[in-house]
Design a protein around this nucleic acid. Structure first.
Length: 297
DNA sequence: AAGCACCGCAACCGCCTCGCC
DNA sequence: GGGCGAGGCGGTTGCGGTGCT
């Protein structure tokens, strides 16, 4: 015999938010501000817990939320900051304007950890960190450079979806890689340098200088790939048969940089790869083989 | 075309911390 | 100082979409 449900259990809705609920929440917060989530939920007329309202607002409805795939710059930031702080998603998110801890957490679990699994190494192990330092970071940096140069040369061309310039990296904001760093620029790759690993030696020096991508992070947060803020986004929503709604993402869900080591390695080229192997036999013997052979027998 | 497997992400859960009384 | 509630955070789950066979 099922336990009788209490009034409290019946009081709160769960599951996907409806368009109506979103509108209620948005309008209440616009008029009264956020905080005091439990009372907010009641006063807004929402049959949701305060926690649920807070989560919905912070992760989805807040106007400055960036959507779409993470740019190479953002991915680099995540890799770097995670190496510093571990799974402190909210702390990492503070350094990625418009990105939520939930989004970063999802990215880490679905992309980065997947790669670690394919390499048969723990995502929090030193070996995995070496793989990140040795392959993905240089590749991401290279992608940033490519996007920078190709964007500058092709951005004036037609920007329809078939344009090569709107491939994931090209769709990302162009980050200027000037050689005159701001004096207060900090290099988030510092700990890669001090790791005793010389893998980054092949990365163009202008990228690894004090004028690293980090000093441009605010610029990369430009909304060129982001979805419009929630208030505008709602116009893209569609109603599903059960009354919940979803957002049609077809217009903005460009594929971001894959951490797929195979394609990553393909972008590096052999000579570069050889240079990066110095001083790290484990990488040479294990990761490299795995990376090269991942799609093989 | 249909079925299946995989993937990405929104949302929930449970624990922890903090502030107030 | 202890209890309590609210908020915050990291971990996990479930569902819808997509690609593959």
């Amino acid at each position: 015999m099922a336990a009788p449900t209490t009034p409290e259990e019946n009081e709160f809705r769960r599951g996907p938010w409806t368009l109506e609920e979103d509108n209620l929440l948005i309008h209440y917060i616009v008029n009264h501000g956020e905080g005091h989530w439990n009372s907010l939920a009641k006063l807004a007329g929402l049959k949701r817990t305060g926690k649920s309202c807070r989560l919905r607002w912070l992760n989805y409805l807040k106007p400055d939320i960036k959507r779409g795939n993470l740019t190479p710059q953002e991915q680099l930031m995540i890799l770097e900051l995670h190496s510093k702080w571990g799974n402190r998603w909210s702390k990492i998110a503070q350094h990625l304007p418009g990105r939520t801890d939930n989004e970063i957490k999802n990215y880490w679990r679905t992309r980065v950890q997947k790669q670690a699994r394919q390499l048969n190494i723990e995502s929090n192990s030193e070996q995995f960190l070496d793989a990140v330092r040795g392959f993905w970071v240089p590749t991401l940096l290279q992608k940033m450079e490519q996007s920078s140069s190709s964007c500058s040369s092709t951005l004036s061309t037609s920007q329809n979806s078939a344009s090569p310039c709107l491939s994931p990296y090209h769709a990302a904001p162009c980050v200027p890689l000037s050689t005159s760093p701001p004096s207060n620029a900090t290099n988030v790759l510092d700990n890669y340098h001090i790791s005793g690993n010389s893998n980054l030696a092949t990365v163009p020096s202008n990228i690894l200088s004090a004028d690293s991508f980090v000093s441009h992070v605010p610029q990369m947060a430009e909304p060129s790939t982001s979805f419009p803020p929630a208030y505008y986004r709602l116009g893209y929503s569609s109603l599903s048969p059960d009354g919940s709604h979803y957002v049609d993402r077809s217009s903005y869900d460009v594929e971001g940089l894959s951490l797929d080591p195979v394609s990553a390695m393909g972008n590096l080229g052999n000579s570069q790869f050889d240079c990066q192997m110095g001083g790290n036999d484990w990488m040479l013997d294990n990761v490299a083989d795995n990376l090269w052979n991942m799609d093989g027998p």
